[in-house]
């Protein structure tokens, strides 16, 4: 069974890129456009990986990570946040909230897959 990924980003371009790259690697990708939508989608079962943007309307990525970590289903699920190079604060905040790691934007497919493989079996 292929692995399920929850890809969360308010930018369709980013969602498309993440989705495209992961699907090509055989993942099942479920997309959500912000934290609130991601929480809704998290209710319908377990995921093998979550990739989330940080800056989003309604609920940002850091809050989302914190909330998902509270959910027993997601306790051991790797969660990556999408951040920009310089944003050490975001990385630290993400980590504090329970993020497994981060993907630095902009990324190319190989970089994305490289990071995913470091956190996802």
């Amino acid at each position: 069974m292929s692995k399920r990924v929850l890809a969360v980003d308010d930018s369709k371009t980013m969602r498309d890129m993440v989705s495209f790259t992961l699907k090509r690697e055989g993942f099942d990708v479920v997309e959500a456009e912000d934290g609130v939508a991601a929480i809704e989608k998290s209710a319908d079962g377990a995921y093998d990986l979550v990739i989330s943007d940080v800056n989003m309307p309604r609920m940002d990525g850091i809050t989302l990570v914190g909330k998902l970590r509270q959910d027993p289903k997601f306790r051991a699920t790797p969660i990556l946040i999408l951040t920009t190079e310089a944003d050490q604060e975001k990385k630290a905040a993400g980590k504090a909230a329970g993020a497994t790691g981060w993907i630095v934007k902009p990324f190319d497919p190989d970089q994305l897959i490289g990071v995913v493989k470091r956190v996802c079996r």
């Binding site: 997309e31 209710a43 319908d44 306790r75 051991a76």
Partner: peptide, 23 residues
């Protein structure tokens, strides 16, 4: 150690809400 409690069954949940528009 991977404490993975069984997924809550009551959360079988609503079908994923698809976005309401396409380009």
């Amino acid at each position: 150690p991977e404490a993975k409690p069984a997924a809550k069954t009551e959360n079988s949940g609503p079908a994923a809400v698809q976005s309401t528009s396409i380009r």
